[in-house]
Write a protein that binds this DNA or RNA. Structure first.
Lengths: 264, 264
DNA sequence: GAGTGGTCTAGACCACTGT
DNA sequence: CAGTGGTCTAGACCACTCC
């Protein structure tokens, strides 16, 4: 026997998915729904909480409850890596014209704002293992936030780690005021003679932690798409590890794979 | 001012992440926690619901509440695509020995059980668009569930669509009793002369729908990792579209990218 | 100020699990 | 059967938004 709040949720879910209520439509007040279903307010509120967790409705304090508009997903393609590499030999001016995020479909450079923060830290066990260095090794930690113009919450947050002793040959690389750096990390590393050979992406989904929920302006527990990006140079060294997180409903990661042809 | 349930949740979260309580440790009963914090039972329960959504604790009806053990993630690499292609010319016996999921790290063939269900359907608008065919085009829909031996809930569920008029040259391809097919879909398609040239993966994260929650044995709203896989043959035709879903905490998708070397 | 969703309490009873 | 989490009610009051 399904719980009462499940039946209320199911009924509303069915109405919405059947298209009876378009996106943006305002639902009756919770007290009205309670009267309508002959249920207690708390029971109705629990049903609403379920639908909200499913991403079907949006509750706005003091305003009302609405059928949620589908947010447009940004697409991010792994082809950006080769594209970025191809641009490292270009002039500063050429590199300045477009960024990697603009390369991915959907957005233009002027629609986006970046912010960067640099800190020197020592490697914790997780990053140390990913970079094959000893725990405590000095690193440069760089935190990037990407925002759409007019939006308060960032689209995504990237945390990148570089080996400090690899990059100290170029003091510009330690200066966050030089961001956004035309040509991105691959160009930054090329200034100290590093050529990236391979980039390893590992993608997971998990509930937002409290701090992610705060930073990305989503509810705790809401699905997060997390990418651990590991860059390996032509000498087989791990030269960058980056963790990137997005609210699950804002991103699509695109990975094309070309296969070798059959021998004739 | 943080809500009371937020403070209770924060306190417990801190204790757990500080390592004061190991994985598997049983928390005090909710009534005890209520007394301890001087709060109402409902308030404590709300705090627990938050921690449960974050994946930190697990509540078992009639038993108690426990610090959640981290589930081991299965890794699935895009290298499986080329690996599978390389095996299409091999003998039936050779192909039978290992499957693509065994290729990915972590599991052995004997630890896994597959089940398949075939149905002929007509293309809905979403799949029709993905395959560049008209809505209503006849398709073979194949649903696969992968289970670890001894586990009830599937690891993941795959729904694959093939163009019926492409495969009807080989009636074995319409027979679900032939599953698991040694060599997988790429070999199946090779029997009707199709060579895959390119596979496009699109990865998203989203809350589990009600039906996914039931099928995968997770809570509604829990993070799901979803993959839309599109296979394109050497003539540029979309020959397979597959949707694969996993509980977010069970899978890691691995995508290596090799970059072209700089010209000397 | 009216109306909305958000928090919290107090208490009853149900449903599941292990002994 | 004891002890746990799950459901539901009734009602008070708060916090936010908009007019």
């Amino acid at each position: 026997m399904a719980a009462r709040y499940d039946r209320i949720a199911a009924e509303l879910r069915a109405k919405i998915s059947r298209g009876a209520h378009p996106a943006g439509w305002r639902l009756p007040a919770e007290t009205e729904l309670a009267a309508e279903y002959g249920a207690n307010l708390g029971t109705v509120r629990r049903a609403m909480a379920t639908l909200e967790a499913e991403g079907i409705i949006e509750r706005r304090h003091g305003v009302g409850t609405f059928v949620k508009e589908k947010r447009q997903r940004i697409s991010r393609s792994s082809e950006r890596y080769q594209w970025e590499k191809n641009r490292t030999p270009l002039s500063d001016e050429d590199r300045r014209r477009t960024g990697a995020t603009e390369f991915d479909t959907g957005l233009e450079l002027q629609d986006l704002r970046f912010s960067a923060r640099y800190q020197t830290v020592s490697a914790d066990s997780d990053v140390a293992e990913a970079m094959s260095v000893k725990e405590g090794t000095p690193l440069l930690r760089r935190t990037y936030e990407t925002r759409r113009v007019g939006e308060n919450a960032p689209l995504g947050i990237a945390t990148s780690y570089l080996l400090l002793d690899l990059i100290e040959g170029n003091s510009d690389l330690l200066d966050e005021a030089k961001e956004p750096w035309p040509g991105g990390t691959q160009h930054q590393l090329s200034t100290v003679g590093v050529e990236i050979d391979r980039i390893d992406d590992r993608v997971t989904a998990r509930p937002a932690t409290i701090s992610e929920a705060t930073a990305l302006d989503v509810r705790p527990g809401e699905p997060i798409l997390a990418l651990r990006k590991t860059s390996i140079d032509t000498h087989g060294r791990v030269v960058e590890v980056a963790d990137i997180v997005w609210p699950g409903d804002r991103i699509e990661l695109h990975y094309p794979t070309r296969l070798a042809r059959w021998a004739k």
